[in-house]
Amino acid sequence: MRKKGAYQQYKDVQIKTANQGKLLLMLYQGCIKFLGLAIKCINDKDFEGANNYLQRARKVINELMSSLNMQQGGEIAENLAMLYEYMNHQLIQANIHKDTEKIKFVKKLLLQLLEAWQEIINGSNTEENIDTNLSINI
């Protein structure tokens, strides 16, 4: 069995010790990173790499969608679910057509959501407030 590098061990500890709000932000940041890498791969004509990063981004979006608490989140959770579904559809189309504009559009949406969640999370002082504000189950 191969030993994990120090950086990977650090990242594993970061994930295991993060609260729900921090995990949510990490998911958004990871997805945004994957989309940026997918754009780079398409521009470099590395379509296999682009496919890999787009699939990873879609997995993150699916995780975000499955973590929504529809009972507590109400209309906000429903709207987020529809938005995540739309993003997934756009990324499927982007992957088929190698369309960086669709990827850039989804990335822009995610950046806006990340900014909003950062404001919510950073404005909360307790995990209880974070749980209430996020309406998610991670």
Rank of each mutant, 00 (worst) to 15 (best):
K3H: 14
K3S: 14
K3Q: 11
G5R: 03
G5K: 00
A6Y: 15
Y7S: 04
Q8F: 02
Q8T: 14
Q9N: 15
V13L: 11
V13T: 13
T17P: 09
T17Y: 14
T17H: 13
A18S: 11
A18I: 12
N19I: 11
N19A: 06
G21Q: 01
G21K: 03
L24Q: 06
L24W: 08
L25C: 07
M26S: 03
L27M: 08
L27V: 01
L27G: 04
Y28S: 02
Q29H: 11
Q29K: 11
Q29D: 15
I32E: 10
K33T: 13
L35D: 05
L35R: 14
L37M: 08
I39F: 00
I39K: 10
I42N: 12
N43V: 04
D44R: 00
K45D: 10
D46H: 04
F47H: 03
E48D: 14
E48W: 07
G49N: 02
G49K: 01
G49A: 04
N52Q: 14
Y53G: 08
L54D: 14
R56Q: 10
A57V: 10
A57D: 09
A57T: 11
K59G: 04
N62G: 04
L64M: 07
S67M: 05
L68I: 01
M70Q: 07
M70F: 08
Q71D: 15
Q71F: 09
Q71I: 11
Q72N: 15
Q72M: 15
G74W: 00
G74T: 02
E75I: 10
E75A: 11
E75R: 09
I76L: 15
A77C: 02
L80R: 05
Y84F: 09
Y86S: 06
M87G: 08
N88G: 12
H89G: 06
Q90A: 07
I92F: 09
Q93S: 14
Q93F: 10
H97F: 03
K98G: 02
K98R: 07
T100Q: 04
I103P: 03
I103E: 07
I103Q: 05
K104C: 12
K104R: 13
F105C: 11
V106W: 04
V106F: 00
V106N: 01
K107Q: 07
L110Y: 04
L110V: 04
L110P: 09
L110D: 05
L111Y: 00
Q112M: 12
Q112W: 10
L113D: 00
L114Y: 04
E115Y: 12
E115F: 13
A116M: 03
A116P: 03
Q118D: 03
Q118C: 03
E119K: 15
E119F: 15
I120W: 11
I121Y: 07
I121A: 12
I121F: 08
G123V: 02
N125F: 02
N125G: 04
N125I: 05
E127C: 05
E128R: 05
E128L: 13
E128Y: 02
N129V: 06
N129E: 15
T132K: 13
N133Y: 01
L134D: 10
S135K: 07
N137V: 06
N137E: 05
